[in-house]
Write a protein that binds this DNA or RNA. Structure first.
Lengths: 172, 172
DNA sequence: AACTTGTCGTTGACATGTCATCATCATGGC
DNA sequence: GCCATGATGATGACATGTCAACGACAAGTT
């Protein structure tokens, strides 16, 4: 192991207590867990770099734009978007304010609900997304998807589906 | 697909330009990619909750403590830790300052290099880590590792190894 | 020794995310 | 209508991360 452990989940002098010993991770499990953590960090970095270099977007920016471009009339209620993206309303509101200042999105009042507001994708925002998308997909392929076999892609899909289903149930 | 797309990487009106069309993701690839993104978000949330509830730690806190507990004399140079964790020195310095204020770590000058400094795990920090570790491993198992078959764990290890090797080479 | 270059870690300004709170309005019971 | 309750989205205080300097020192060159 060239890189040192860095994360959690194996004894190493931590598990010395007489108390309830958990089942620590074995080597294969540890390898998968740490690998996952490290992959996340580096993959994020790469994709973020590409988005920033191409169109000055962050990953959250890109996610917001994509979600909007998929929505009818390129608009969506703040709440619904927050729920979809697993963001807090507060976070989304702040982020939309900043994206609005850059001209990527706008807010519109909701006619049917006096409290509500829509986030609307501007033409400029659409253009920026259009310009950023090819490079982003290319990066996702180059640094992730194309490195796997078909079988691995399928199995990763299975894994994430299982975990997601479990997490959704256990989050209340 | 109950949940709406939310992320990148499939056409949907974005890929209409005459310019260089990338290879968009097919269904299996899209499933794996979006699943990965969503799993990340939810898994983070769960593990962070557990750490916070048990010992008032964040995930970064936990990573720092673990890395220190694995180091000889429970101390390590700032640079080396930053490199291991894939953090900027600035981030680490700020974070250590905050952890120091909570009594989890300390700084010591480095005798052999006048510029350098060690981060040292305090006894209290060690106690907190010891108290947090079992719950953390349990959560990692419950929400992730134990949901996979042995084969899936092995394959995930393979995948992350491949991707990491690739990323390390392409990051200069 | 004097100078150049590079590394170490810190700092401050700023961008971003979280949390609690708030005004506003919707909704249902009376 | 009137009230209690709850949902919506905005806001400010604060925690956290990024980025570009910076002072201090190390290492190599002359």
């Amino acid at each position: 192991m060239e890189d040192t452990a860095v994360l959690p989940t194996q004894p190493e002098g931590v598990g010395a207590g007489p108390a309830s010993e958990p089942r620590w991770l074995n080597d294969a499990e540890f390898r998968a867990w740490i690998g996952y953590r490290r992959m996340r960090a580096l993959l994020d970095l790469q994709l973020a770099r590409r988005l920033a270099a191409d169109q000055g977007l962050s990953e959250p920016d890109y996610d917001v734009l994509t979600s909007l471009s998929d929505s009818p009339d390129r608009r969506i209620r703040l709440s619904e978007m927050a729920e979809r993206m697993l963001w807090s309303k507060s976070r989304l509101s702040h982020h939309v304010t900043r994206m609005q200042q850059r001209g990527l999105v706008t807010r519109k009042e909701c006619p049917s609900d006096g409290r509500g507001a829509f986030i609307v994708l501007t033409d400029q925002g659409m253009e920026v997304l259009r310009a950023a998308a090819p490079g982003h997909v290319t990066a996702v392929r180059e640094h992730f998807i194309d490195l796997m076999t078909e079988e691995q892609v399928r199995m990763l899909g299975d894994i994430t589906e299982t975990v997601l289903e479990h997490l959704r149930r256990s989050m209340d």
